[in-house]
Amino acid sequence: MDHTGHFPWDWTVGDADEFFAHERSILNLAFATIRAYQTHLEVFCDFLTDPVYEWDRVCLQGFGRSPAQIITEFNRVRHAQNNEQAPAKRPFTRAELQGFFDLANLEVERVLVSGRKGAVAAYRDATVFKTAYAWGLRANEVTHLQTVDFSRNRWAPQFGEFGVLQVRDGKAQRGSPPKRRSVLTVFDWSPAVLDTWIRTGLPWLAPAVSEIFPTANGLPVPKSNLHRRFRDYIDELGRVLEDMIEKAVRPKEERE
C-alpha cells in the first residue's frame, strides 16, 4: 500500500511488477526474500478473491471494485535451483573459521570480566556454532537437538556417546514431515566440546529439559538470536582485519 498508494481492491499486476522490480534492483533483496514476499502476497490475494469469504462481493458493493490476484506465473520468482546463493558467498578459510571460534570463546571471557549477564548464553551460542560446523547442521536442526539424538558408533568407539547424530528436524519436502538423517562424527574435538557444555554449561540454564541448547526458560534458542550473534562476530572480525591491513599498509606509504 505504501508503494502503490492504493488499497488492495485497486491493486493491479503492474503494481506488483513495479514493487518487486524496486525491491530487487534498488534494495537488492535476495531471490529467497522476494519469493517469500510474493508468497505472502499471493496467499493474501487468494483470501480476498475466494468466493467462500465473500470479500470480493463486499468490496464490489462498497467500493465498486473487487480485488484480483496480482501474483501470476509470469511475475513469480521461481525456485528453480537448490542453491540460490550469490557467487560472492564462499566457505570460510581455516584461518577465518578458527578466528570466528576464537572470538566466540573470547566473548564469554569478555562478558565475565565486564560483570554483565549473558556469559552462559554466549558460551551456549559458541557451542552451537561449533556443533553446527562439526556435524553440518542447519540452524533449525542444531537449535532442536536433544541429548537423546546422540548415540555410540560401534565402528568409532573413540567418540564415546557422540559417535552418531540422529537429526530429526531436517528440512522437509513440500507437504511432508521433517526429514530425518544420520550424521557420523568425524572431528576428534567435537565430542569433547559437547560433553563439556552438557556437564558444565547446560545445568546453569535449564537442567530439567532434554534440549541441548535451551534458553533460560527451557525453550530452544531462537534462530534470530543466533543469526544476530553470528553477524556481530563477523562484523567484528571484519573490522579487525581492516585495522590489520591499514597498519600493514601505513608503514609502506610512510616510507614512500
Rank of each mutant, 00 (worst) to 15 (best):
R65N: 11
P67K: 01
P67L: 03
P67V: 02
A68W: 08
A68L: 13
I70D: 00
I71S: 01
T72A: 01
F74Q: 13
N75V: 02
N75F: 00
N75A: 03
R76L: 04
R76M: 01
H79M: 11
Q81K: 14
N82L: 11
N82H: 13
N82K: 14
N83L: 09
N83P: 01
E84N: 14
E84V: 07
Q85D: 14
A88I: 14
R90K: 09
P91I: 06
P91W: 08
A95W: 14
E96I: 08
E96C: 05
Q98D: 14
Q98E: 14
G99L: 02
G99A: 02
G99R: 02
F100M: 13
F101W: 13
F101K: 07
N105M: 10
N105P: 07
E107M: 13
E107P: 07
E107C: 12
E107G: 08
V108L: 05
R110C: 09
V111E: 04
V111C: 04
K117Q: 12
G118L: 01
G118T: 05
A119Y: 10
A119V: 07
V120G: 03
A121R: 15
A122M: 07
A122Q: 05
A122P: 10
Y123N: 04
R124K: 01
D125P: 01
A126L: 06
A126G: 06
A126F: 04
T127K: 05
T127W: 03
V128N: 00
F129M: 05
K130M: 15
K130A: 14
A132W: 06
A132L: 10
A132T: 07
A134G: 02
W135G: 00
